[in-house]
C-alpha cells in the first residue's frame, strides 16, 4: 500500500527536463529529485498546484495510490 509518484512519466510526456521544471515550479532540482525518486514523505499543495500548472495535468496524473 503506497503512493506512487509518476512525475517522470508526465515529464517525459511533456518533454520537459528536471532543471527547467524545477525552475518553473520554484523548487530546487534536489527537491524535485526527491519527489521523482519517491523519497518524499509529503508534498505541499502549493508545489502540487505548480506542478499541475506547468505540466498541464491533474494531481491524479502525478500521484497514484496502489493498494
Amino acid at each position: 500500500m503506497e503512493i506512487i509518484v509518476n512525475l517522470d512519466v508526465m515529464m517525459a510526456r511533456r518533454k520537459i527536463g528536471s532543471g527547467e521544471l524545477a525552475e518553473r515550479v520554484g523548487i530546487t532540482p534536489a527537491n524535485l529529485s526527491i519527489l521523482k525518486t519517491g523519497k518524499a514523505k509529503a508534498i505541499r499543495f502549493s508545489t502540487l498546484m505548480a506542478l499541475c500548472r506547468e505540466l498541464g495535468c491533474q494531481p491524479g496524473d502525478i500521484l497514484e495510490y496502489r493498494p
Partner: peptide, 8 residues
C-alpha cells in the same frame, strides 16, 4: 525534522 526535510 526528518519529515520536514523530505517535504517538497
Amino acid at each position: 525534522k526528518d519529515e520536514l526535510d523530505l517535504t517538497v
